[in-house]
Design a protein around this nucleic acid. Sequence first.
DNA 1: CCCCAATCTGAGAACGTTCTCACATTGGAG
DNA 2: CTCCAATGTGAGAACGTTCTCAGATTGGGG
Lengths: 372, 372
Amino acid sequence: MATEPGSRERPKRSRPNINDVAKRAGVSRATASRVLGGYGYSSQEVIERVNQAVRELGYEPDRIARTMRSGKSDVIGFVCADISDAFFSAAMRGICDVALREGSQVIVMNTDDRGSQERQATKVLLSHKVDGIIITPVSVREHGHIDAVTRAGVPVVSLDRQLSDSGIDSVVADNEAATAAAIDHLIGLGHRRVAFLGSVQPEEPPALRIGKVRASVAGPSRPSHDRVRGYLRALSAAGLHPDRDLIALVPHDEPKRRMHAVQTMLELEDPPTALFTADSYMTKSAFSLLSERGIAIPGDISLLGFDDLEWTTLVRPRISVVVQPSYEMGRAAAEQLFAQIGRNAAPDTDPRGRRTVVPARFLERDSVAPSP
Amino acid sequence: MATEPGSRERPKRSRPNINDVAKRAGVSRATASRVLGGYGYSSQEVIERVNQAVRELGYEPDRIARTMRSGKSDVIGFVCADISDAFFSAAMRGICDVALREGSQVIVMNTDDRGSQERQATKVLLSHKVDGIIITPVSVREHGHIDAVTRAGVPVVSLDRQLSDSGIDSVVADNEAATAAAIDHLIGLGHRRVAFLGSVQPEEPPALRIGKVRASVAGPSRPSHDRVRGYLRALSAAGLHPDRDLIALVPHDEPKRRMHAVQTMLELEDPPTALFTADSYMTKSAFSLLSERGIAIPGDISLLGFDDLEWTTLVRPRISVVVQPSYEMGRAAAEQLFAQIGRNAAPDTDPRGRRTVVPARFLERDSVAPSP
DNA sequence: CCCCAATCTGAGAACGTTCTCACATTGGAG
DNA sequence: CTCCAATGTGAGAACGTTCTCAGATTGGGG
């Protein structure tokens, strides 16, 4: 009723609030809130009148006001390097599914693996009063900004990487064990010269890239390191000595250097009979180069990769891979986060942080054969 | 100073607010806010004292309270079918990049192409007071819930699909033109029997899948329809008549039926000499089947696909494709959304909604050859 | 008949911000 | 000297919610 003359500028008509509901139901705001919140006492009649009013007005509570009052926002943050990356977008889906079940929403922020962006992201999320944060931290050592989050009483779960010396929960794949098993598989097939080709983050200290692999690889969990460790462990378990020439670690943002690393490996005097490519970037580069050069897989050389990508079953031969369950890892991280949120961020349970390790699976396909 | 005895239960120590800043600077809350907001008059001395206090306390304004007061949240929503899909996650990245520049964050919600989820998502986002929504709507006809969003004064941009009879902005690829050009290319190479293999949404009316393709394909922009239209247009421009047997549209969530559609096509009495696969699902299925069957591409049959996926350059032959610039589409949608937000959601500019069409590119590779 | 517990309700505070308004205090022009 | 504009400041309202508290009304047990 009462359509004002200038019905054009209606957009100013804002959503009904709880006062409107109360008025329509003929009760006070407190009573309406009590009915909606389902606490305290309310007469049956009032309950019905309020619900009726809610329906008639199409009332939806304002989550901002609710957050203001309660401190709980029903929003969590996901901080990752790049949401368009297949691993992160799959994990994101897992996170979203759990969040939906919990009645929460997810804010995503990309860091491009830059510490400054990450620090900014945590600040912003905190000022949005998120209930918790899932993060794939750029650095496993410098995590002052992340500690600040937990200190503010906001739960944090670290995904895919583990922070050293912090009580922060983490969800990681068993990269070391899975890699060791894969390498062991190759050794079992008679391979004695197995190359390890992996990527590292651009920010990583160059020490890792050249000398003292074993030492520099020690420390907190980070996929690239753990996989090197797994490689070394399998070798040593089989009584083989690691050969510096058969290990290459290049920054993941330099495709040319990746190609070059594979190339160098193939031109060795005593070349490897099997390639273990420790991540999707490297697997792709190696496969490209091999097929460009007309080198037969697995006839001339065996190829075993990490990460299951769509194309690994589309190319011939189909590539055998160790696959990280990215969706499930996202789910697990979210489950753990909501568990923390539920018990009100009690930071006392385990001083070293709960660590969830999810198994990576080995998918045998056609790119690996016995050593000639 | 003054570390209380029970310094264990510190987490209750909440972040400093603007009152703390004001107190420390020895001014009123209003003055502190004025300095921080940079409006009105403030003496140089007070400005410095306030900034000093901000630094000392590490004060960060509470965005929830700010939203409460101003109605602007610096958050936008992205509603898509599935964030783990390559198209959406790339678009998401584009959206995030623009949002970052604008000082906003992005909440993602998945619908799995279900109308109920989508309606729910818009409600939730509205109650979070988002400044705008980018959406890939499930249905191009039933958009009452989306109209409700604009009616609430919240800008909306539709991505990849266009809503019929609504003033809602959209960003879409020129699917029809790009498809027509691709088909034309095939015809130019002598192909007379070109098959069209595409997917449709599960919810889509079966009418589309069987008869009267041309008629049912009319209407608002939606990639699957536009591509069929482009196909028909190119055929007709070349004086060719469409053959019902050479057109297959199957729900994208039924891989078996996809395979079956390709199979049927190949077993036709007068089989096609070229396959146009109108989306990534179909391209993958067709390539798989062809290579399984040992059918030579492009020797026995030419293959031309839609969507550029990583593997299309990894397999042999490399697949020629029409590629949709997903990242740029996300960017464009976000740009348009913030433009609307900037001019305060004036819904008066163009009653039919601004339509941004971004060109799809044709990438010629090795999977297309002249007709034998 | 009185009292107290149980039931029901509403007034009002609080969350942290922004911003309007009113009230000083200047100093220069007339 | 007077007046007014320019400059500087603070009190307090408002956003929409939740929830504590106190007050009112019942009814049953003593």
